[in-house]
């Protein structure tokens, strides 16, 4: 299967098979002013199957969100049709504005302007304010 190469844009590679569509949605790439190709179930020697997202526009992507949803994904920045930068994501130590604290006793439940910040602890992500554990990403 061939997808045209992109000149200036972003390729999110090594996405766990099945998470491509979700990432497109969470990264708000399902809008009508950007060309996006979602390639599902691509054969991978390392992963067996993987998804790939190609974004034909030089737009910023939320690396924290990608790292939270799929820490094994890689982000390739393409400039003038060449690979300018390759980033392996991993699990970010701090997640800002990616997930919301569900604890009704947390200060974030009443202060709407407060950013929801989660810190990576030994047992997963916990709210910076109330230490409530975030639901595990599926």
């Amino acid at each position: 299967m061939n997808i045209d190469s992109i000149k200036d844009g972003v390729v999110i590679d090594h996405i766990t098979a099945g998470k491509g569509m979700k990432l497109v949605s969470l990264l708000e790439l399902d809008r009508d002013d950007v060309s996006v190709a979602i390639i599902k179930n691509v054969h991978s020697r390392k992963m067996g199957k993987k998804d790939i997202i190609k974004i034909d526009a030089d737009i910023p992507v939320n690396l924290d969100l990608i790292g939270y949803v799929d820490p094994g994904a890689t982000v390739n920045i393409i400039k003038n049709s060449v690979l300018a930068e390759k980033k392996t994501i991993g699990r970010p130590k701090v997640l800002t504005g990616v997930i919301r604290c569900k604890n009704p006793r947390c200060i974030t439940s009443v202060e709407q302007e407060l950013k929801h910040v989660f810190l990576l602890r030994s047992d997963g992500y916990r709210c910076m304010y109330c230490e409530t554990k975030a639901a595990e990403e599926q």
Binding site: I107, C127, M128, Y129
Partner: peptide
């Protein structure tokens, strides 16, 4: 003192 958890950090 505040009733909400994390208010002191804010």
């Amino acid at each position: 003192r505040h009733p909400k958890e994390g208010a002191a950090l804010v």
